[in-house]
């Protein structure tokens, strides 16, 4: 433990992290220190994608990032994808298309899909599969998740 502190910018808000152990992951700090438990951890080895957050717009596994090294970055978590409490198009599509069962994989997937659709407006089925292949879902078998991503994609294209 140390008495030093550092700042993290999460969802547009500056947070001070005090008395933290230097080895704490961004995942731990978000969940246990900043009151943002939306980001999940299921492997802490970068294998499951449950902890996916955006750092300066890039999707990363928060479990692999030391929180203290993220001080320069703008971090977006599932809680910060929309600012007004209304669901984003991707979130709505996951609900409508049946992409949510237990929901533990969902926050990470939702962040990953936002990242995908921001970079690639019209991803093919294979591009979708590849983009979310780092996000494990044990419940759905992915079928309804693919449907949700396609629904969000098509809605954006139609706009």
């Amino acid at each position: 433990m140390s008495n030093e502190f550092y700042q993290l910018s999460v969802n547009g808000v500056a947070h001070e992290v005090r008395d933290a152990w230097a080895g704490e992951s961004l995942l731990y700090v978000l969940r246990e220190r900043l009151g943002l438990p939306g980001t999940k951890g299921a492997c802490e080895q970068g294998e499951c994608g449950s902890c996916t957050v955006l750092m300066d717009g890039e999707a990363v596994c928060a479990c692999l990032v030391m929180a203290a090294t993220a001080v320069e970055a703008e971090i977006t978590t599932v809680e910060g994808l929309s600012s007004d409490g209304e669901p984003t198009d991707v979130q709505q599509a996951f609900v409508d298309a049946g992409g949510v069962q237990c929901g533990f994989c969902t926050p990470g997937l939702v962040v990953a899909v936002h990242h995908l659709l921001e970079r690639t407006a019209n991803p093919s089925e294979l591009q979708i599969k590849e983009a979310i292949s780092g996000n494990i879902c044990r419940c759905t078998g992915y079928g309804r998740i693919f449907a949700a991503v396609k629904q969000a994609r098509d809605n954006r294209l139609a706009m």
Binding site: G38, T77, V78, E79, P87, V95, D96, V100, G103, V110
Partner: peptide, 23 residues
């Protein structure tokens, strides 16, 4: 009908409290 599950929206928004989220 394909009724929408009531825990769906909290889950996609990261608001649903899993056992690991309670403190």
């Amino acid at each position: 009908t394909s009724a929408v599950r009531p825990d769906g929206m909290p889950k996609v928004q990261g608001r649903f409290a899993f056992a690991s989220d309670v403190w």
